[in-house]
Design a protein around this nucleic acid. Structure first.
Lengths: 236, 236
DNA sequence: CCGCACAATATGTCTAGACATATTCATCTT
DNA sequence: AAGATGAATATGTCTAGACATATTGTGCGG
């Protein structure tokens, strides 16, 4: 495992910053100096510093130099897989059961969620994700049929719309929001829990070049799901 | 705004992948071909492809070539700021009130959370984050005093331990987990809500080179907090 | 037909230099 | 003292080539 030189330089500077040898706001040696220290070309150092800048550990300004970043916001990588993959990764059997399907003109509330005009054609699918036959999550999905007309031909009886959309409709942007809420009567009944109990809610919206394609709400009973994220070495 | 050439190449390939001109699993032209197409040095193309690989849009294998990635896991950037910043960003006044502080030997449960031996010195702080005087979140924090002995000298009466730790103790790794749960009697009382109502729970653990420094649990009443994340153009 | 060795190939790394560009600092003018 | 000007400097981009390295495909021998 011969480490590339630019990696070694990057790792060294990173360690030094972490150890406080270079403190937040402080200036690092310039590229020429570092190249001399490491006895290598300036571009090799530049690559190492570029990677550190990309990772947000340093800020670079022309003429001024390279400075250790001071950060307050932590950017975390959150991995969200589709529900089937989530369930299967815990070794349980996965199944989907459609509870409702309505192809219709968008009502005010639905139009707002998708960012389309009232009356635009939409598809609403409500379904239950099962793990070993037990309710795992309730999905309420709205699909903009103007953006994804092919969805109208799908029944979504035993396959969740999420998986189908992932393979059949392209998207450019997505947004996730995670909240907690109390189960209303209908939701509680569908999930087989008691009214008012805590739910973890994941809302996912996806866009294709500016137009919202689909908006989904996944409701997990407390304890059924956990979103985890790991992060390394921002520091500031 | 003269765009760097490597950026232009990157953007072009990205757009082509997004448009489906190059499909998942498909091979891209090799560096030499692309360099000829763009009439530039191979290294410039290499940089563009390197950036795409970094972003996860393509996978590169020596001798084989560069392939459009097929991804099932969505990696999302989640921004988590400290509670004070969260509250202030909504224009409300922030305050912290300590409810309890215990410096002691770790009990079994606490030792497990921090990954230390039972009986190791720990500091437990429970406090309330207030927004405009109203409870916004309850924080339960454990600090490993072997890893951060300086914390023992702090009272944490009006300042949250999170902010102090951020500025006084370095860390190399962190993990977040988001779940929902029902409020127990004591928690409900502290947050001024009713027992059993839904809570959004953020658990944060931070490590300094392998040793767990601190473990914290933030409990937000349903509706008080929302974790959002945006992502762009993975595709697979 | 299978496995093994070897050559071909595409990426990965690196260099030494060139020119571009943004920003700062010092100086000169008003 | 305030503002304009220009030189100095550090990063940013790019090139043309060299060698390293991993992997794959091919052909050879058993």
């Amino acid at each position: 495992m011969t480490q590339p030189l630019h990696e070694a330089i990057r790792a060294r500077l990173e360690a030094d910053i972490l150890a406080g040898i270079y403190k937040p706001g402080e200036k690092l040696p310039n590229e020429t100096q570092l190249a001399a220290e490491w006895n290598c070309a300036r571009m090799t150092v530049s690559r190492a510093l570029g990677a550190l800048a990309e990772a947000g550990m340093v800020q670079r300004r022309k003429r001024a130099g390279t400075f250790v970043a001071r950060r307050t916001v932590q950017e975390t990588v959150l991995e969200i897989r589709d529900v089937a993959a989530e369930v299967r990764s815990t070794g349980r059997e996965y199944a989907f059961r459609r509870l409702a399907r309505r192809e219709d003109a968008a009502r005010a509330e639905e139009a707002a969620a998708l960012g389309v005009a009232e009356g635009a054609p939409i598809l609403l699918v409500i379904g239950l994700h099962l793990a070993d036959g037990q309710p795992h999550a309730l999905e309420e999905r709205l699909i903009n049929l103007d953006a994804a007309p092919a969805a109208a031909r799908e029944r979504f009886e035993d396959d969740a719309p999420g998986a189908w959309l992932l393979t059949h409709v392209a998207w450019t942007e997505a947004e996730h929001a995670i909240t907690a809420l109390a189960a209303d009567g209908q939701t509680a009944k569908r999930l087989g829990i008691s009214t008012g109990s805590a739910l973890l809610c994941l809302e996912r919206k996806t866009w294709l070049s500016g137009a919202c394609v689909t908006s989904a709400r996944f409701l997990y009973p407390a304890g059924a799901q956990r979103f985890t994220a790991r992060l390394r070495q921002p520091r500031g």
